[in-house]
Computed example of a mutant assay.
Amino acid sequence: MSTTSHRQALVLGASRGLGLVLAHELARRGWRVIATTRRDGGELQANAAARNGQLTVESLEMTSVEQLAALRERLEGRRIDLLFVNAAIDRGDLPIHDVPTDMFTEVMVTNALSPLRALEALRGLVVPGGTVAVMSSEQGSIARNTEDGYELYKASKAALNQLMRSYATRHAGDGHTKLLIDPGHNRTQLGGPDAPLAPQESIPAVVDVLEAQAGAPGLQFLDRLGETVPW
């Protein structure tokens, strides 16, 4: 990984919630951050304007293969120490037999397929010894699926974890640290107002884990405290 003053991160999905706080926290620690959003303006753009080039914003709809390819072309020649993919939607608490097919497809494409497409499209920018990481969830843990509810969301995160395992197997020799991160249940649009954690509490801990694990071999599924989450 590059020296502290030259570390560069690419954070996909940073317009709000955990991704927004992650981009801000990395920049606060001295990383140069490229952060993506689907829409112009908003808090991410305001943060970028206040950071005098340390945080820059790129437009990306992550479910679009064409936009991923265009982003890759725009970033040609950049050396990225951390590629972090943050993408998730939830369409409510329905038992799986009541989930419409189009809803199932939308959630699986956004939460599982698109993050892996993004890694494949952008992994060539990551330096030897760099890190590729994806925001997962404890709800993707099959071992811990012992309570009712949110079956589609849980399935999408379990699928994400499985696809990341396949990615790690296929690219076992590339020298990249590979991480699935469970940030805990946070008060975001996705997590809801009654969640026990605030992103401003959990994300600094997540960045501690990202920095501590830099250079570690293989794939790990870790929580915000660096503890292993069971598959």
Rank of each mutant, 00 (worst) to 15 (best):
M1D: 07
S2P: 06
T3E: 11
T3R: 11
T3P: 00
T4M: 13
S5I: 07
H6D: 15
H6N: 15
H6T: 15
R7Y: 06
Q8H: 15
A9G: 13
L10V: 14
L10R: 10
L12N: 01
L12E: 02
G13H: 03
G13A: 04
G13Y: 06
A14P: 07
S15M: 09
S15C: 02
R16S: 03
R16W: 12
G17M: 04
G17K: 12
G19M: 08
L20F: 01
V21M: 07
V21S: 10
L22M: 15
A23R: 00
H24N: 14
H24C: 06
E25W: 04
L26F: 05
L26S: 00
A27N: 05
R28K: 14
R29M: 03
R29Y: 12
R29H: 09
G30E: 01
G30C: 13
W31L: 07
W31R: 00
W31A: 12
W31K: 10
W31V: 04
R32N: 08
R32E: 10
R32C: 05
V33A: 07
V33R: 02
V33H: 00
V33P: 01
I34N: 00
I34F: 12
A35E: 05
T36A: 07
R39F: 02
D40R: 15
G41D: 11
E43Q: 13
E43W: 01
L44C: 00
Q45M: 09
Q45I: 05
Q45P: 07
A46M: 06
A46H: 04
N47H: 06
N47W: 08
A49F: 02
A49R: 08
A49P: 02
R51D: 04
R51F: 01
R51S: 01
R51L: 09
R51I: 05
N52W: 06
Q54S: 08
Q54R: 12
Q54D: 07
Q54C: 00
L55E: 09
L55I: 06
T56W: 10
T56L: 01
T56A: 05
V57Q: 04
V57A: 05
V57S: 04
V57G: 11
E58W: 05
E58K: 10
E58D: 15
S59W: 14
S59I: 08
E61Y: 11
M62N: 09
M62W: 07
T63Q: 11
T63V: 13
S64T: 00
S64A: 11
S64L: 14
S64Q: 12
S64I: 06
V65I: 15
V65A: 14
E66V: 09
E66R: 05
Q67W: 05
Q67P: 06
